[in-house]
């Protein structure tokens, strides 16, 4: 399966959910938010969301700012 992760192409084998993708990428989920194909996927659904071929995944994080 091919996906785009913040504009980086990624070939996935043993990964099927968003939560598994985060684990594989070793990402700290504190302050993280995710949109798939421009729709926000809530944290509580990361375990359920089944990745599809060609999904565009965007990761966002909380940063400092006024």
């Amino acid at each position: 399966m091919h996906i785009m992760l913040n504009d980086t192409p990624l070939q996935l084998a043993a990964v099927s959910t968003l939560a598994q993708l985060l684990q594989q990428q070793q990402l700290n989920t504190e302050g993280l938010a995710i949109a798939v194909n421009d729709s926000v996927i809530a944290k509580r659904l990361w375990h359920e969301y089944q990745l599809q071929n060609h999904d565009q995944i965007q990761l966002f994080q909380i940063v400092t700012g006024g």
Binding site: L5, N6, T8, Q25, N28, L32, A33, Q58, L59, F60, Q61, I62, V63, T64, G65, G66
Partner: peptide, 13 residues
């Protein structure tokens, strides 16, 4: 206040 921005995968958080 805090802001939100796209995560830069190649930079440490």
């Amino acid at each position: 206040t805090l802001a939100i921005k796209r995560l830069e995968l190649d930079k440490p958080r």
